[in-house]
């Protein structure tokens, strides 16, 4: 048995742990414009990132977008997930494929679609100006709103499918029993469906929050040059600035913040569930 598990285990370690370990090591090095990276063991990259108001702001934007997108995805995803979970079985697989369909398209291509829709010469502005509703193009693209819309569209399928899997496990008769006892639809939702779906809400929100925190293509393509989130900032340091140590430090800060918030958030929600 061990002989079978060992190579696979090593491979997993190779694939998951090795790049992280390498990255951790790099984050402690020192950057030099001429030699790129000088071996060192210093926390100055972390210190600089934490103190720099620019990166504080980037992290703030990232958190804001991630939280906003998670809440939006939850609000939009719950009704859709409920509808999907309660659908007659012969339509369900078709609907599931429809929900998954957007995931078949990569983020870059999908963002290109949004650009074609939201750009100054995009479909929406063309329609608005064509109909004479607006004189000039509305600035729909290259702002936080476009990024939120774009990211929500990306993460919504994950939220819907996670929630639907849990909602499917809620016996429909529990809802009927609640209605039978005098519960109006909103009360049934609040008192029965939501508490029972809470594990799905936690799982879906955690998944989506992590995806949002690490969003790259969507903020780059829809946010425009002036909108910065953490993942593009990390990429910028690695690829444009060639400053690997600082980029690695930023990456670990992003990871740590995501991890802490995920654990805190799911614990709080989970506690609520046990209390209910």
């Amino acid at each position: 048995m061990a002989a079978l598990v060992l190579p696979a285990g090593l491979l997993v370690v190779m694939l998951l742990v090795a790049p992280m370990a390498l990255l951790a090591r790099i984050s402690l090095n020192r950057f030099s414009p001429t030699e790129l990276m000088v071996e060192a063991t210093t926390a100055e990259n972390y210190w600089r990132a934490v103190q720099d108001p620019y990166y504080q702001q980037v992290l703030g934007t990232t958190l804001g977008v991630a939280l906003g997108c998670t809440v939006l995805a939850l609000a939009l995803g719950f009704p859709a997930a409920y509808w999907l979970a309660r659908m007659e079985s012969r339509w369900k697989s078709l609907a599931t494929i429809l929900v998954l369909f957007p995931l078949l398209v990569g983020n870059v291509v999908r963002s290109a679609g949004w650009m074609a829709l939201l750009g100054n010469e995009g479909a929406i502005n063309a329609a608005l100006m064509g109909a004479g509703i607006t004189g000039g193009p509305l600035p729909l693209l290259y702002n936080g709103g476009a990024v939120v819309v774009g990211i929500v569209a990306v993460v919504l399928p994950y939220m819907i499918l996670t929630l639907a899997a849990v909602i499917e496990g809620i016996p429909r008769q529990a809802e009927e029993a609640a209605a039978n006892l005098g519960g109006r639809p909103m009360t049934v939702f609040r008192r029965v469906v939501l508490p029972l779906a809470l594990p799905g809400v936690v799982a879906g929100s955690v998944l989506v929050f992590i995806l949002c925190m690490n969003a790259y293509a969507t903020p780059v393509l829809l946010g425009g040059p002036q909108f910065k989130m953490m993942a593009p900032a990390v990429y910028d340091q690695f690829v444009r600035g060639n400053n690997w140590p600082f980029g690695a430090a930023l990456a670990f800060i992003l990871l740590a913040v995501t991890l802490v918030l995920t654990v805190v958030g799911s614990t709080l929600l989970g506690r609520r569930y046990r209390a209910a």
């Binding site: 390498l22 790099i26 990390v234 990429y235 690695f238 690829v239 690997w244 980029g247 990456a251």
Partner: peptide
Amino acid sequence: ALTGSAAALASL
């Protein structure tokens, strides 16, 4: 397609 961490992996 190359991302930051993939770049690190490339060297591996």
